[in-house]
Every structure is written in C-alpha cells, then in structure tokens.
Simulated assay, not measured.
Amino acid sequence: MSEKNFIDYIRVFCHSGKGGRGITHFMRTKFNAKAGPDGGDGGRGGHVILRGNKQLWTLLHLRYFKNVVADDGENGMKNNCTGRFGKDVIIEVPLGTIARDEETGEIEAEILEDGQEVIWLRGGRGGQGNQHFATPTNQVPEHSQPGEEGVEGYKLLELKVLADVGLVGFPNAGKSTLLSVVSAAKPKIANYAFTTLIPNLGMVPYRDGRSFCMADLPGIIEGASEGKGLGHRFLRHIERNAVLLFLIPADSEDHAKEFAVLYNELEQFNPELLQKDMLIAISKSDMLDEELKREIAKELPEKLPHIFISSVTGFGIVELKDLLWAKLNMTQSE
C-alpha cells in the first residue's frame, strides 16, 4: 500500500435522521362518524452505524465522504399506521477504529471485530399519534407528538493498527528488513531514515501451522511524543500491540541510551504502554563477536529479556520467534 493511500485519521460531519411526526386523525366508518382516534406514530429517524470490515486496512474510502446524513422518519398515518423508519447509514471501517466526538474528545465507539456493528448516532424517536392520548374523560384527543430531532456534530475516526507484536525502534534500525524475513510482507527497505512512512503488517508463521501478526511501525525519534518527526501520527498504533519488540542495531553508538530514548518517548506519549510485555533485539548482530555481544548485554536493562539477531544471515530468528510466541501466550493467558 502506498503512503498516499494509507489514511488513519479522518474528520466527518454526521447527522442522524429526525423522527417522523405522530398525527392527529379520527376514524370514520359508514355508521359512526366519530369512531375514535386512529392517528399513527411517526417513524424513527435513521441511525448512523459503524460496522467492522476485516478487508479494510485504511480510512481512505472516507476521504471524500465527509458528510454522513441519515434519512428522516416518515410521519404517522391514519388507521394507526406507523410511518416508515428512516434509512440507516452504515459506515464500514477497518478493525481497530476508534470513534470520538471532536468537541469533547470522548471515545464513543470502538470496532475490534469483523461484522461488529455499533450505533454511533441514534436517530430521533418518532412522535406518538393521538391514539395514545385517548382517556375516559378525553375520548377525542386533538394532541399528537412531533418527532425528536436527530443528533449532529463533527466526529473523528482514528485507526490504530491491530497486531500481536509491534516493532519499536529508531529509523533505519532494521525493522522493515526483519519483517520481510519473518513474514511474506514486502515493506520498502533502503539505507536512509524514515523509509517506512506507513505501518506494515505481516503474518509470521510459527510451529504446527500457528502464526502471529507483526507490525513494522514508522521509526521513533527523540521528541516524537511532542510531535517531532512522524510524532503522534504513528505512536498511537503501538497502543494496540500486545508485545513490544525494541529493535536496536548492533552498530549503535550507545545501546543503553537508544533504548532509554525509545522507552521515554513511549512513557511521555502514554504511560500505560509501559505495562506491555517488552523484548529487546539487537539487530545486525552478524558483525559482532562473542566478546562484543557480552559487552552490549551489560548495557541493556537487566529486567528485560534480550536476544541478538541478524536478518541477513538468519541468526537468532528462530529463537526470536520462540520468545515472542511465549510472550504472546503469557499475555493471552493473563
């Protein structure tokens, strides 16, 4: 998918339908001109509904669909007939989409499953016809209700990529190369910063036909939590990953500092990210001997497991899969 086709944040104006008006009407028969009230209820206004679609990976299809307006309900009719409901508008979104109100920032819906439907904006209720207001003392009610107004406002749709493992690292740390080796994904790879401008997903095959999903996320730089580099635009995708794999290249000038910067940016963006399972992988390790590996290991946090890998030679890749699978199973069992 090209960068211009990946849209993960969009603003839309939504308006649910107005409820139909209940009517005032009296039944007239051949032998009774005052047979009683028979005014029907108004129909409900159309809802605005979000539906999950696992075939979608972006919000691109909504770029030119900025005004979402559901139909109004029809007015009630005689003979106690209810008016037709307004037609609902269904917005299909990729899994991992969050819907917010622009003014309050409140999360109003979250789509995580294929086919899941959530009524985002409810249509107005139809008004009651005069049949409902007949009493023993008022058998000829002249009153009926108008329909309720629909709901309107500017709304935000935000996509957070769903993946089991998220690759976290500086630009050019080897994340895309690793993903291309362990899965069938073909991310763009080049020897310059910010090669990856959109999240790339790949299914990683494991033993006995099992697999898990890995996401190559655009590189983080110092200050990303404040909006530098690609900033908040892609940090939010990390919130969906069950396990975070920190990728630090073997040729880094300071491995401990590089990890500390990455860790700090996650903490500044959302402290809850630090509760996730974490693993450190030292990439490009084919250039290291055993003595250098021991020296680098001393720099890394003692509480976090680490592994040396090389995407070029395949060194440590099988062991990395084993570690990730164990982490994922431990996370899911909890």
Rank of each mutant, 00 (worst) to 15 (best):
K155T: 05
G96A: 08
L235V: 06
G223H: 11
F6Y: 15
T177E: 12
T24G: 07
S16N: 05
E92N: 14
A184C: 01
S180K: 10
K327H: 06
T313E: 04
P187D: 11
I10D: 00
A99M: 02
I23C: 02
V181W: 00
T104C: 12
K188P: 00
G129T: 08
S211G: 03
G202D: 08
N138W: 08
V181F: 05
P94Y: 04
G219C: 05
L320M: 14
P187N: 05
N329F: 01
E302N: 09
Y9L: 14
V318M: 08
L62I: 02
R210V: 00
L217H: 02
R28N: 10
E103I: 13
P171E: 10
V69F: 01
F170G: 01
Y263C: 10
W57Y: 13
Y154L: 12
L121V: 02
T137W: 10
N5I: 00
Q55S: 15
T104Y: 10
E319T: 11
G36M: 09
I221V: 15
P141K: 01
F133G: 01
F31W: 02
S176I: 07
R51K: 15
L274C: 13
S183T: 15
R51E: 15
I248Y: 13
P305Y: 06
C213I: 15
G174F: 07
S283E: 08
F308T: 00
V48K: 07
A260D: 13
I111A: 13
L328I: 04
I307W: 06
E253C: 07
A190R: 07
T313N: 03
K30D: 12
I198M: 12
I296S: 06
L60Q: 14
L292E: 14
S311Q: 05
L323V: 03
V204K: 06
L247W: 00
L300A: 11
N75H: 10
G147S: 08
L235W: 05
V204I: 13
N329W: 02
N67D: 11
A326S: 11
D322K: 04
N130A: 04
Q275V: 00
R28H: 10
A163E: 06
N67W: 08
Q116N: 11
G124I: 01
A215C: 15
N130Q: 06
K293H: 01
P146Q: 11
K321R: 14
V161Y: 10
G76M: 02
